[in-house]
Design a protein around this nucleic acid. Structure first.
Lengths: 209, 209
DNA sequence: GGCTAAAACGAACGTTCGTGCTATATACTC
DNA sequence: GAGTATATAGCACGAACGTTCGTTTTAGCC
């Protein structure tokens, strides 16, 4: 193993742990000492991988984005474009949060609330990424309309807002109360809307169970 | 003014400022030094009003609850029980957040995300209060059903979850993007549901404008 | 086997945090 | 007016924070 590759590997390991900690304790609660302790390495050795705490935070956000793409976006995009993919995006998102891989639930919901009043590059990147997600959702809706699965009467931006809200709401209920039925409620609400706006060409109604 | 009353007054002033800071910086970001500076008093003098930082946090949460009751719950409860009150609860909540009295938007949305992975009395109190809000919402729905304004076919808990989610979603969009149209979207989604489930006895349809 | 450069370390910096101890100023009681 | 309780201030503490610096370990190259 080259020395160079070793550095990359360590950096990956650091960020992997950082994402988990930050989802629960936040990006400020994510301290370098704590991170070093958890990885059994020195503060200074760890710090050398990033020039500053802010850079570490940005890198952590970036790492979380890649995980999100790998675990939610990509699997959903294996489905064919249209209604199915739209539903997959929502369904997999909910399943992913419910699976509890992150102690703090949805990473971005957590850090968005933390940084929404803290101007700077960290906040900017978080906002960008969440906007990206919302655009993905909206785009899937438009595609479902183009494919003739959903009626053109609905406003795609409005529907994307509603779906995103329901997901945030489910995440909130699960994190605060451990209430897993919130995911069922979110799915029910989303499906109800999808089914209501499905055209004849949209195929048989989707169901929850 | 008695010494005793002076203490009470100071405490109120502290908590008033604390709620504002915490809505933006969080309950951990709310430091005693910062708070003392903002109030032009000494750290120790301020600290004497609370036995610990945790007590200060709990007191701040309590203060926020009282503000919320005064500004949202009470005004909504001036409306007659039933559909109107239910709508008022949602509408006033949105207007209150939009008014921007708190730099960090909805106080409870902010601190819930911060503390949902931090066990302790602070988290417990936040969870209680938000459950209280959800119960208020649900109860208003049930009352609207009992009054014959809304159909009994709907699940009150489900609808309360959806309304709460839409409110959280609007708060999220406004805080992260300054997007005021999110409030319009939330209102539209809520009204759409209310109108759809309104019985003939529910009176004329509610409108947004 | 030495040389180089990357990677990790250990110790310390200055600052800020929450918290405690002691003293002073103020208002009410008798 | 002396005495007491309350409110606030001053000062110091130990711990933890992000950060810097000089050193040591390690892998690849000639």
């Amino acid at each position: 193993m080259s020395r160079k590759a070793q550095g990359e590997r360590t950096r990956k390991a650091i960020l992997e742990t950082a994402v988990h900690i930050a989802s629960a304790e936040g990006l400020e609660g994510l301290t370098i000492g704590r991170l070093a302790l958890e990885l059994s390495m020195s503060k200074s050795g760890l710090f050398a991988h990033f020039g500053s705490k802010e850079e570490l935070q940005v890198a952590t956000v970036e790492a979380a984005r890649e995980i999100f793409i790998r675990e939610v976006i990509k699997p959903a995009f294996e489905a064919t474009q249209g209604l199915i993919r739209l539903w997959k995006l929502c369904d997999i998102w909910l399943a992913y949060v419910q699976s509890g891989v992150f102690r703090g639930g949805c990473f971005f919901a957590a850090v968005a609330a933390e940084f929404d009043s803290r101007p700077g590059p960290v906040r900017d990147r978080i906002a960008e990424i969440m906007k990206e997600w919302l655009a993905t959702l909206r785009n899937a809706i438009v595609e479902a309309q183009t494919a003739g699965h959903l009626t053109n009467a609905i406003d795609a931006t409005q529907l994307a807002f509603e779906f995103n809200s329901l997901e945030l709401g489910a995440n909130w209920a699960f994190q605060l109360y451990g209430d897993a039925s919130a995911f069922k409620r979110a799915r029910e609400a989303i499906l109800e809307r999808l089914n209501r706006y499905t055209t004849a060409a949209g195929g048989p109604l989707l169901t929850h169970e």
